[in-house]
Amino acid sequence: MDYVQTLIMAFISVVLVNNLVLTKFLGICPYLGVSGRLDMAFGMGMAVTFVVTLAGTLTWLIDHLILMNPALEAYGLDVTRYVCFILVIAGAVQLVEMYLRKFFPTLYESFGIFLPLITTNCAILGLCLFLNLWDIHNFAQAVVLSFGAGIGFTIAICIMAGIRENLNMADVPKCLRGAPITLITAGLLTLAFMGFAGMIK
């Protein structure tokens, strides 16, 4: 029971308290660049969730089975950590792309340009690095955190898209239109998410 509780806590923590977008500034580019369309944002979020779960799990395995393996420690393999991580992510994205194109062509069409762009989404590499930084020694926890990070990203990007939909109708000062008002909105959102901090002890 304790074990399940830890996992649930980890999930809530990474979705709300340590939301990668709003507290760690990861994945800001798609977050700010997202058009004001909720369905597109949701699609993007789902694609990221899928890739980040896959990449997070794989990089955690590589990190623990190869790079931090005590038997191989003498070779100093951990210096290649970043190279390994980014190659795994790029590979995972390509795999997902090929798989979707072959088996779910409609889904592939709807993701469109998003898929290849996911490689350079900081949220994914960021999460892989944070798994390493947070000293996660437990496989299940690594998977849950990866999945949670994706969900957190989806929530953040959907909220943003929803706000932007309404922002189109607002009377914003001329010089603040476009990127500036988006940034200010994002700032207020982070303020709101700060309320979740301290929820998990």
Partner: peptide, 25 residues
């Protein structure tokens, strides 16, 4: 304190961008 937190980052950059827009306009 808020300026060193995420919220400060977003709002400062937003206002700077707005200022730049105003100047170039």
């Amino acid at each position: 304190a808020a300026m060193s937190m995420p919220v400060g980052a977003f709002i400062t950059l937003g206002l700077i961008l707005g200022l730049i827009n105003a100047i170039t306009k």
